[in-house]
Amino acid sequence: MLELSLVLKNAGKSLKKTGKQMRKNYAAYLFLLPKLILFTLFIAIPVVWAFVLSFQEYRITEANLFAGLDNYKQVFESEAFRKALINTTIYTVVTVPFNVITALIAASFIHTLGRFAQNFFRAAFYLPTVTSMVIIAMVWRWMYNYEFGLFNHVVGWFGMEKINWLGQTDSALSAIIIMQMLIPFGVGIILYMASMSSISDSLYEAATIDGANAFQKWFKITVPMLTPSTIYLTLLSTIGSFQVFTQIILMTGGGPGYATETLVHLIYKTGFRDFEFGLAAAQSVVLFFIIFVISVLQYRVLNRKG
């Protein structure tokens, strides 16, 4: 009993302290209020609502019906979801390491250049990031065109047979992956360059005295010192890759067959074509947990290595 009263007393004290601090910083809280309202309205409520909806059968003009775990059962039994999950995983496993590593290498080279050249390459590599994926996808669809696309022209120079890049099951996903790999990871390059600037010169000077060559300095100093950026970029890139959508809907529609079906494209179709919002919400929740678990694992593994 005595313990309980002590706990309550402490809790009361803590609340009082928090209240006092809030009163003290009221100006900051008031400035944060509009953002908090927007966040609550457009992010927090929809996310919570999606969780609730995943246990319901969505009805448009009447109250939703409670569906228990039916939606989740459908998700895990669905062949389309299984194929979409496999495709999305392959896409992520190939593109994320490639993009992060190439960004690191590109940033390392650019960092050694003069100021003018640095600015030029920084802008050049960042340009695709500010270009709409719709435009990029349309250009790439042209490049993959069987009859007059750029790739089949190049293939022709080597006397090889033309490839139906987006029309064959065995090449369509690879074509989408190649496209993603060849679009420079602008954010990564910019972030790595910024982080490289903050590495102390004394580390490199000490390594030089110890007789380290340029590669050793890069591998033993630069790469480890960039670990926080690498963790951030890997997480960012993984989340983005699991949400791949625009290029799929514009270039293949998920086909041929289910060769390029991805999770977000499937969720979109389930929700806005089939109007099964309960099932789409359940698919979204599963995707959320997949991304969450992978992000935590990536963070722990990379952080430990760092």
């Binding site: 669809r141 065109n145 069987y146 009859e147 033309k162 139906n164 987006l166 029309g167 293949t252 529609g253 086909g255 041929p256």
Partner: peptide, 24 residues
């Protein structure tokens, strides 16, 4: 029929028939 027959490119298919620069 071209290899692209049976693909998903609606606009490209129409252009191949109607576009004066293609007509393939």
């Amino acid at each position: 029929a071209p290899v692209s027959m049976g693909g998903a490119d609606v606009g490209g298919t129409f252009q191949a028939w109607a576009n004066e620069e293609q007509r393939t």
